[in-house]
């Protein structure tokens, strides 16, 4: 009897030690241990994809039902707005012509046209603290290989920042979202000589889909409504990806000024993301 208990305790301790070692080793970026999940991921990916399609269809159907009521109310508002917008359109058409002329003159290109971009479907969403990354259907087989010094920015269809790739196996990858408390990126205000700040997720604010800009230079003149884009410093994210805009200023626990930022991307309605794989050769 005592022997059985001792054997059981030994088994539990040994298993715990093995799992602790697994946690430590798999936490390194690009750890080959992350490939342990490859065979199971390969089986689960099509199952998750099909379930996602089904739930997506149900969700769309439900939204269309509930939207019917609000559409009628919105219709009245829109009629009023329509009149105002017609007026603005004529002004903007003139501005647009000017912009096209300038664009041609300066030979502007689309911001990220030199980047190889790969689309991937979101397979799973986060489940709470410590299980709060999401999984996408692209992996090392699609060129998403993470190393200690290399990761990839993840954006939406409008090139707005969603997060970065955290780890990958053969067919899938995990994405650390912008709202996550472990996410940090160098950002700058989207204007000429805009101030450089650090943008990070915050555990208190992520429920409200908000994040924080800190390390604000004392000399900077940040204002509510200022847009933040990636600064390109650090080399992980290309410069100029839209992050979000400042909605509020606060003081942190140490009395330093921080800005509350609302990300531009709509985290609740994402189904496909785009990975910026790097400069095309």
């Amino acid at each position: 009897m005592r022997k059985v208990v001792r054997t059981r305790i030994f088994t539990v301790v040994l298993t715990s030690l093995i799992l602790l070692a697994l946690i430590l080793l798999s936490s390194f970026p690009g750890s080959p241990l992350n490939h342990l999940t490859s065979p199971v991921s390969a089986i689960f990916k099509p199952i998750q994809s099909s379930f996602r399609s089904v739930t997506g269809n149900i969700s769309d159907f439900w939204i269309s039902l509930t939207d019917g009521m609000s559409i009628r109310q919105e219709n009245e508002k829109l009629a009023q707005e329509n009149a105002q917008l017609k007026n603005k359109v004529s002004q903007l058409e003139a501005a647009g012509r000017n912009y096209e002329e300038l664009k041609t003159a300066l030979q502007l290109k689309d911001k990220f046209d030199r980047y190889e971009i790969a689309g991937a479907r979101i397979l799973t969403r986060e489940l709470g603290t410590w299980f709060d990354v999401f999984k996408i259907g692209s992996g090392t087989a699609d060129g998403i290989t993470i190393t200690e010094s290399e990761s990839f920015a993840v954006v939406d269809a409008q090139s707005r920042l969603i997060g970065r790739v955290l780890s990958s196996d053969l067919t899938t990858a995990k994405v650390l979202p912008l709202l996550h408390e472990g996410f940090a990126v160098s950002a700058r205000v989207n204007e000429v000589n805009g101030a450089i700040v650090r943008l990070r997720g915050d555990i208190e604010l992520k429920e409200d889909n908000l994040c924080v800009a800190d390390q604000i230079p004392t000399s900077s003149d940040l204002r509510i409504g200022d847009e933040l884009v990636t600064s390109g410093l650090g080399g992980l994210f290309p410069e100029g990806i839209l992050i979000g805009s400042i909605i509020e200023f606060r003081d942190d626990a140490a009395g330093r000024k921080i800005a509350i930022v609302r990300p531009s991307v709509d985290f609740d309605n994402m189904s496909v993301v785009f990975i910026m794989k790097g400069l095309q050769s």
Binding site: T15, I23, S26, T37, V40, R125, F131
Partner: peptide
């Protein structure tokens, strides 16, 4: 309980875990 915990934890880690092993340990 232990075996099911480890297997279920592996799937949890694989899907949404920051690291591999934490879900296995917690569920075990």
């Amino acid at each position: 309980g232990m075996i099911i915990g480890i297997l279920a934890g592996f799937l949890r880690d694989m899907m949404v875990g920051r690291v591999l092993g934490l879900g296995m340990l917690l569920f075990m």
